[in-house]
């Protein structure tokens, strides 16, 4: 495994010259990351999850009703390497009814539930098989958040798009119209969630065209939101992390304002994830910043 690692870094024949690079380090140095990214090879043994995020209240709102959580753990060692990440964007239903309370309660409740479940397996070297699946844990986390919001801020609501990354598996829980995307270096961008919005549903039913959807007067109306309705049915699914590629989660303050192709360019051309997030937030603000902006970007390399 270690040999493959250096073969990947330096090519087969070049003996390692810089001694500091001989040490296997985690997190990797900027130089190492670049080398790996450049020789992207999906079978590479040492995987590392990187993430960054950005948020702005925007230019027209006084209150930030978005909430965001990004958590990346690196556990590397001789017995293997398990990337673990949890990324959540929640957009409180604004204007009334304490959306900021709801979105904040949502990210705390979901993250709290998930971390509690994984703690024994990740940090206490528990050898038993987990008796709940990723999807069941996500569902329980969302249901938990639903209860807490209904107690702490009844009548309010929030979107929730949460991605749990374990190894190369991404398990997504989604309610509302925040979005998760896969962004590929070749310029493709693919939404992996489906908006629970009136306008999207009407578009799906063919009652309005995608062009009409852009200017539809009730673009912000959701038919499913966390905190609303007694029987919540979140979308929960598991897919493989794109390699090479990025996972992006954002609120409609970004996707509703910046064109998809501009999003891709900002992500792919940026020298780092941090810069990419800054660029995305700036682009949304430059386009008027009509709403709160939240974005998380994650990349699985190696």
């Amino acid at each position: 495994m270690l040999k493959n690692f250096f073969d990947g870094l330096f090519g087969k024949k070049t003996p390692p010259e810089k001694t500091q690079d001989v040490t296997q380090t985690a997190p990797l140095t900027e130089e190492q990351i670049q080398t790996i990214v450049n020789n992207q090879n999906p079978h590479f043994d040492l995987q590392q999850l990187l993430a960054s995020c950005g948020q702005s209240v925007g230019k027209q709102r006084e209150l930030n009703e978005d909430s965001l959580l990004a958590l990346t753990a690196t556990m590397a060692g001789n017995s293997g390497n398990l990337p673990f990440g949890l990324y959540i964007v929640a957009d409180g239903m604004g204007g009334h009814q304490f959306g900021e309370v709801a979105s904040n309660a949502a990210i705390r409740a979901v993250a709290g539930h998930i971390l509690k479940k994984f703690h024994p397996y990740l940090f206490q070297v528990k050898t038993d098989t987990m008796d709940e699946s990723f999807q069941e844990i996500m569902l329980e986390a969302v249901r938990d958040a639903q209860r807490i919001i209904q107690r702490e801020a009844p009548g309010s609501g929030t979107t929730l798009t949460a991605a749990l990354v374990i190894g190369q598996q991404v398990t997504v829980a989604h309610v509302g119209d925040s979005r998760a995307y896969f962004v590929f270096p070749d310029g493709r961008i693919e939404p992996i969630t489906r908006d629970h919005s009136l306008v999207k549903r009407l578009e799906e039913l063919g009652h309005i065209t995608p062009e009409e959807a852009v200017n539809y007067p009730h673009r912000n109306v959701l038919y499913r939101a966390l905190g609303q309705g007694e029987l919540l049915d979140p979308d929960i699914f598991t897919i493989a992390f794109p390699q090479p590629g990025y996972l992006m989660i954002c609120s409609d303050g970004l996707w509703g304002v910046v064109a998809e192709q501009d999003i891709v360019r900002s992500v792919v051309e940026a020298p780092s994830l941090q810069r990419a997030c800054q660029n995305l937030v700036s682009a949304a603000n430059a386009a008027g910043g009509p709403d709160n902006i939240s974005v998380v970007l994650a990349q699985l390399i190696g």
Binding site: M93, Q97, G157, R201, L222, Y223, A225, G229
Partner: peptide, 28 residues
């Protein structure tokens, strides 16, 4: 119940029980 009056908000006026409500109810 309680949620029977309409409050128009910037995002997501959600009234009624999803699934049973007609399209126009989501528009308020």
């Amino acid at each position: 119940g309680i949620a029977k009056t309409f409050q128009t908000g910037i995002k997501g006026t959600m009234i009624g029980t999803e699934g049973y409500s007609p399209p126009e109810q989501y528009r308020g």
